[in-house]
């Protein structure tokens, strides 16, 4: 039996209501409910997945949902043992209206910039985050710019094209 299948079975036995699949030999995908995510992350961290590589966000505009993806890898562990399992993608969905979720900083401290980035690009609020301020952007946007309903061309026309050129002639 493959190593990742073994871990997938263990996950399914430990947690109820989660979908575990192994689309590739070195990848495990977990779909979980909102409430379970922190517990699963803690469980996986104890299993040796001690590195949060990335938090990603997908805007499913037809289903009115945001999908958060937590990508975990083992880091500075016994590499040979984990080589066959590979990465774990933990996915969860939250509604698009007033999106809010809990911060995972108590478990993975390096989640701080990722959550700030998602906050400013998608507008998801992370409860318990110490400082949800601007990370990359300079301006405030009415709709966060990475949402699917943000019209960049309209925005460029409104903001950048409306700035008048400097007249060349002297006063």
């Amino acid at each position: 039996m493959k190593m990742n299948k073994k871990l997938a079975e263990e996950l399914e036995l430990t947690f109820k209501d989660i979908e575990v699949s192994t689309p590739e030999d070195t990848k495990i995908e977990i779909f979980a409910h909102k409430e379970q995510v922190l517990t699963i992350l803690r469980f996986l961290k104890d299993k040796g997945y001690n590195h949060l590589a990335l938090i990603s966000c997908v805007d499913w505009i037809e289903k009115a949902e945001f999908e958060l993806v937590y990508i975990l890898t083992p880091y500075l562990q016994d590499y040979e043992a984990y080589k066959e399992i590979g990465d774990i993608h933990l996915k969860m969905r939250i509604p698009r209206e007033n999106p809010e979720f809990e911060t995972v900083i108590p478990i993975f401290a390096n989640a701080e910039p990722y959550e700030r980035e998602i906050h400013e690009l998608f507008g998801i609020k992370f409860a318990g985050h110490p400082r949800l301020t601007h990370l990359l952007l300079e301006r405030d946007y009415a709709i966060p710019p990475f949402r699917k309903d943000f019209d960049t061309r309209e925005y460029v026309k409104d903001v950048f094209d409306s700035i008048p050129p400097i007249k060349g002639e002297k006063k």
Partner: peptide, 13 residues
């Protein structure tokens, strides 16, 4: 980057 939301288009402005 002509339609980017965060990049200025005409520097001479």
């Amino acid at each position: 980057y002509w339609d980017s939301y965060n990049t200025i288009k005409h520097l001479d402005k």
